[in-house]
Write a protein that binds this DNA or RNA. Structure first.
Length: 739
RNA sequence: GCGGCGGUGGCGAAAUUGGCAAACGCGAUGGACUCAAAAUCCAUUGCCCGAAAGGGCUUGCGGGUUCGAUUCCCGCCCGCCGCACCA
């Protein structure tokens, strides 16, 4: 098992903290890392420290830049002007994935649209593979669903509507080509470049201009507000519906989005709720073309009012209409995605510099590999101002063009931190390599990660970006696998009074306090005992004392046993109930941890073992045979609790055996001792519990039924009725069905 | 609206494949030890009726399948999370 530790150190939170406290982000980041490390050590967590690194170290980000250049060479990193999400508080651009309900993920400020030159990764090229390969990983269903929805693949058709007045063609994307005969109007997004040109010279020109201007100033949040009334303005033009030649009116309306499809739609009010609402408001024709339910209806059914396709089921008409359009040159099958390219440039200081220079003669020129890393320079003022603070480092910015040698300027944007974290797991495999990001043979040996663990908050962002990086690296031959994380476990979050812990809310529980008060063993065990790890929990102090008491009990039991009994080899003689319990606990802990991450019930099993030992210790300590079994049981409790409470577990084990638990193999349950000789069998009448009887384990069905039938308490419940059926479950239960 | 997860004692929770509902812990109550307290140890603790023996009820609500349902199916209610005018 590779057990590394590292720090995703670049980024906005680190920088904002530094600005607030007036320190250089490097200093505050490194101080935080020291504190983290000190805590990990005090918790007694086993980590391979030879592999430790931070993503802010030049030795690491040199290779982040190297990967960027490889993506650039393949056209997977490109620069483009785009309407982007701008956070006015953090003074930076955000990725789509970092905009939550129209607000900045980091600070909650509503984002504004801005048109800027930015760097993008072409993740959309991988949309289909990112979607299809979800079938090859063992991930929780909800995470797979979230990724699938985020990619948002829709199959449909592109259909061309022609505006005869201007002589221009407008393609639209539709998932419902079967409803084309019901298209009674046409709508464009306010951002569509042709909108104002279309309205020009018509009676609606002024109105359209005002509408577009207003729409462009609105934030995504305002515009996307739920249950908002449909608005729009006619453009005074028509387009031709290609299936029937009808002239249908054009509108501009903000319910159509420029980012999706072509920024224009055909509207079928009879079979689309949004178009229906718009048509009602503007008094437009609503024409039914599918015989389904009450309008608007999106159900299936036979076509009507659809010319020669009448009577055909809409699912069949779907393909036939597209085929016909294609033969006429007015349409073709098409696939659309919700996924957008990944905007990776940030106008901030504390990030990995983008390794390119801008040359007046050669344009954008990549920095050659042998000049990497492009080191982040120290600047006086790194507070955000809308352009990157690096632009102020004039000495650093001015450079020569690697291609022509002339004067050039460095790129001053830095990378989104998600770039840094998209390949760190590869570096963990080979962290000391200074000649390459990693050696392919080493990475291929370790990867993919057999068991990845993280919070659901990474379901889309990190987990999508890392998958994209691995696929791109695989295509370039740098790695020999397609998916980075074979199995995923999403642990829950520990909240405080139902809220996420945060310094600004002042509701942070520091583990340090508990380590100091109770010791690391109690703090660790309690965290794991509080509930199932996938579920998360609200923190409460109630219960910490229970675990602390238990560990104290185990300690005193070991001390007393060491005093009262002599060291011995493995237990011999007839098994006591305690010896059986010890093997039962081995099985519970082993299977629970291995198969289900059921740490809470694993700890409960060890508690049961210790409780039983308390009740049986006086009896067992009295005989030589019993003493060996008692020692074994206590030593077993020590080794089973070792993964959770390592300090105490190791001490207990050593007191009982004189050996070091971490040098021993994990205990194995003796299958023979897991099965009792006599089992308690439940006796039911009509499914109701009426008695319990002792039956030899593994008894024949007839034998088990006979013993149950002889139960003295049974008679009153049979009450003279006739037994019509008897259900026997071996070693468990007998149910008499009485009429 | 769509998708996902969840709802079990006073509380955190457990129940492996449809087979004893509530393991384990917290809290509470009683007892032992102590001058006393803390710590520790022992016992009781789902709800209702009953002096007890015993009986009845109980996994958000209503149905269903089954000898038997916390578990499977159908229909609701509530909570949390994600997406959301995606054509």
């Amino acid at each position: 098992v590779l057990h590394p530790m590292g720090y995703d150190a670049f980024g906005l939170p680190a920088e904002n903290h530094a600005i607030r406290t007036g320190q250089h982000p490097r200093d505050s980041t490194e101080a935080s890392i020291e504190e983290f490390k000190r805590q990990f050590l005090s918790w007694g967590i086993s980590i391979d420290w030879t592999r430790e690194f931070g993503t802010h170290e030049p030795r690491y980000y040199r290779w982040t830049q190297w990967i960027f250049l490889r993506l650039f060479e393949r056209g997977l990193a490109y620069r483009d002007e785009a309407a982007v999400n701008w956070c006015p508080k953090d003074q930076t651009v955000l990725a789509n994935e970092q905009v939550i309900d129209g607000a900045c993920e980091r600070c909650g400020t509503p984002v504004e649209p801005r048109l800027l030159e930015q760097w993008f990764f072409k993740i959309t090229d991988y949309a289909d593979r990112l979607l299809d390969d979800l079938a090859t990983v063992e991930w929780p269903e909800h995470v797979v669903t979230m990724q699938r929805n985020w990619i948002g693949r829709s199959e449909g058709a592109e259909v061309v509507f022609r505006c005869e007045d201007l002589g221009t063609d407008y393609p639209v994307f539709t998932t419902r080509p079967d409803t084309l005969f019901g298209a009674t109007f046409f709508v464009m997004a306010p951002e569509h470049p042709d909108v104002l040109r279309l309205a020009e010279g018509t009676e609606h020109e002024e109105e359209a201009r005002a509408y577009v201007n207003h729409a462009l100033t609105e934030s995504a949040e305002e515009r996307g507000a739920e249950a908002r009334d449909k608005t729009g303005v006619p453009l005074g033009r028509t387009v031709t519906n290609p299936v029937n030649g009808e002239q249908i009116p054009m509108f501009v309306a903000d319910y159509v989005l420029m980012e999706y499809g072509t920024g224009a739609i055909m509207a079928v009010p009879a079979h689309d709720e949004r178009d229906f609402e718009f048509a009602q408001k503007f008094g437009l024709e609503i024409r039914r073309v599918i015989d389904c339910g009450e309008l608007p209806c999106t159900e299936d059914g036979p076509l009507v009012n659809s010319g020669r396709f009448d009577g055909l089921h809409n699912r069949e008409a779907f393909g036939q209409i597209v085929e016909w359009l294609e033969s006429e040159g007015r349409g073709k099958p098409s696939v659309n995605y919700r996924l957008r390219d990944w905007l990776l440039s940030r106008q901030r200081y504390w990030g990995c510099p983008i390794p390119v220079v801008h040359c007046p003669a050669c344009g954008i020129v990549p920095v050659p590999d042998d000049q990497l890393p492009v080191e982040l320079p120290d600047v006086e003022d790194y507070a955000p101002k809308g352009r990157s603070p690096l632009a102020a480092a004039e000495d650093w910015v001015r450079t020569s063009c690697p291609r022509c040698g002339g004067e050039a300027r460095r790129e001053t944007d830095t990378m989104d931190t998600f770039v840094d974290s998209s390949w760190y797991f590869l570096r963990y495999c080979d962290p000391l390599d200074d000649s390459a990001p990693f050696d392919r043979a080493v990475v291929d040996a370790w990867m993919p990660v057999d068991q990845y663990i993280g919070g659901v908050e990474h379901a889309i962002l990190h987990l999508m970006y890392a998958r994209f990086f691995v696929k791109a690296l695989a295509d370039m031959g740098h790695v020999g696998f397609q998916e980075p994380f074979a199995r995923l476990f999403t642990q829950g979050m520990i909240t405080r009074d139902g809220a996420k812990m945060s310094k600004s809310k002042g509701n942070v529980i520091s583990p340090r306090e508990y380590v100091e008060r109770y010791g690391a063993d109690t703090a660790r065990s309690y965290m794991l005992y509080i509930g199932p790890p996938e579920q998360g929990a609200d923190w409460s102090d109630e219960g910490v004392s229970g675990i602390n008491r238990f560990l104290g009990r185990l300690w005193r039991l070991a001390a007393e046993t060491a005093e009262r009994t002599a060291p011995s080899e493995s237990p011999v003689g007839d098994p006591s109930p305690l010896l059986r319990k010890a093997h039962w606990a081995i099985e519970r802990v082993t299977a629970g941890v291995r198969d289900r991450f059921a740490f809470n019930t694993a700890i409960a099993a060890v508690i049961e073992l210790v409780n039983d030992a308390y009740l049986q210790k006086d009896e067992l300590a009295g005989s030589d045979l019993g003493a060996t079994q008692l020692r074994f049981a206590v030593a077993t409790a020590g080794s089973l609790i070792f993964p959770f409470a390592p300090h105490l577990g190791a001490e207990v084990f050593e007191m009982m055996t004189g050996r070091r638990v971490w040098e021993e193999p994990w205990p194995e349950a003796d299958a023979g001792l897991l099965r009792a000789d006599v089992v308690e069998v439940v006796v039911q009448v009509n499914g109701k519990l009426r008695d319990r009887v002792q039956v030899p384990a593994g008894a024949a069905r007839e034998e088990q039924e006979r013993i149950a039938r002889e139960s003295p308490r049974l008679e009153q419940f049979l009450d003279g009725g006739e037994i019509v059926k008897t259900v026997v479950v071996a070693d468990k239960l007998v149910n008499f069905v009485v009429r």
